[in-house]
Amino acid sequence: MKQAAHAVILATFLLPLLPVAAAQAGPIDRACNASPRKQKSISLCACIQRVADASLTRREQRQAARFFSDPHRAQETRQSDRPGDELFWKRYRAFGDLAERTCR
Rank of each mutant, 00 (worst) to 15 (best):
Met1Asn: 11
Lys2Tyr: 10
Gln3Trp: 04
Ala4His: 07
Ala5Asn: 12
Ala5Gly: 07
Ala7Leu: 14
Ala7Ile: 14
Ile9Asn: 15
Ile9Asp: 15
Leu10Trp: 13
Leu10Lys: 15
Leu10Cys: 13
Ala11Asn: 08
Ala11Glu: 06
Phe13Pro: 10
Leu14Asn: 08
Leu15Asp: 11
Pro16Ser: 05
Pro16His: 04
Leu17Trp: 03
Leu17Pro: 05
Leu18Tyr: 08
Pro19Glu: 03
Pro19Asp: 00
Val20Met: 15
Ala21Leu: 14
Ala22His: 13
Ala23Asn: 13
Gln24Cys: 14
Ala25Phe: 10
Gly26Met: 03
Pro27Trp: 04
Pro27Met: 08
Ile28Asp: 01
Ile28Lys: 00
Ile28Asn: 00
Asp29Val: 04
Asp29Gln: 14
Asp29Gly: 11
Asp29Ser: 12
Asp29Ala: 06
Arg30His: 08
Ala31Tyr: 04
Cys32Glu: 01
Cys32Val: 00
Cys32Ala: 02
Asn33Pro: 07
Ser35Gln: 00
Pro36Leu: 06
Pro36Trp: 04
Arg37Thr: 11
Arg37Ser: 11
Lys38Gln: 13
Lys38Thr: 08
Lys40Ala: 09
Ser41Cys: 07
Ser41Ala: 06
Ser41Tyr: 03
Ile42Arg: 14
Cys45Leu: 04
Ala46Pro: 03
Cys47Ile: 04
Ile48Cys: 06
Gln49Met: 02
Gln49Leu: 02
Arg50Lys: 14
Val51Cys: 01
Val51Pro: 03
Val51Asp: 06
Ala52Lys: 07
Ala52Arg: 05
Asp53Gln: 10
Ala54Val: 05
Ser55Gln: 03
Ser55Asn: 06
Ser55Trp: 00
Ser55Tyr: 07
Leu56Trp: 02
Thr57Ala: 09
Arg58Val: 11
Gln61Gly: 04
Arg62Gln: 13
Gln63Asn: 12
Gln63Ile: 12
Ala64His: 07
Ala64Ile: 10
Ala65Trp: 00
Ala65Thr: 01
Phe68Met: 06
Phe68Pro: 01
His72Gly: 13
His72Lys: 13
Ala74Arg: 10
Gln75Trp: 06
Thr77Asp: 00
Thr77Gln: 03
Gln79Gly: 12
Ser80Val: 02
Ser80Lys: 02
Ser80Trp: 05
Ser80Thr: 05
Asp81Thr: 07
Arg82Leu: 09
Arg82Thr: 13
Phe88Gly: 00
Trp89Pro: 00
Lys90Ile: 05
Lys90Cys: 04
Tyr92Arg: 01
Tyr92Phe: 14
Arg93Thr: 09
Arg93Phe: 12
Ala94Ser: 09
Gly96Lys: 09
Leu98His: 09
Glu100Ile: 10
Arg101Thr: 12
Thr102Tyr: 07
Cys103Trp: 02
Cys103Asp: 04
